[in-house]
Amino acid sequence: MIDREQVLHVARLARLELTEAEVAKMSEELSAVLGHIEKIGELDLDGVPPTTHVVEVSNALRPDEVQPSLPREIALASAPAIADGGFLVPSPQADADPS
């Protein structure tokens, strides 16, 4: 079960902002889903290896060969804000405490 504090903590980690009403709803909905999910806790999985990839492939490395880069105007084309050839963002240093 996931309470209000946990919801707020997770939202902070995920950079999401929830209204008070959303927090309550999220707590309820996530608790319901987690209640279902927690049934896997009953399984005996000792010694079972985890699966990250269903198909056995390894390495798939790339030769160290230069490929053309994007022209800068293309790289910046979709950016909401640009300046001096770069992506403009609010300065992290100037940030107030998020919480």
Binding site: R62, P68, A75, L76, G85
Partner: peptide, 27 residues
């Protein structure tokens, strides 16, 4: 000091104009 980046084929160089060595992957 590889020629290219860790996960894409963009060249590595020091002192180039900003955002001239990028591709969809490293962006």
């Amino acid at each position: 000091s590889t020629r290219t980046k860790m996960f894409c084929g963009c060249a590595l160089a020091f002192g180039e104009p900003p955002n001239t060595l990028t591709c969809p992957t490293c962006l």
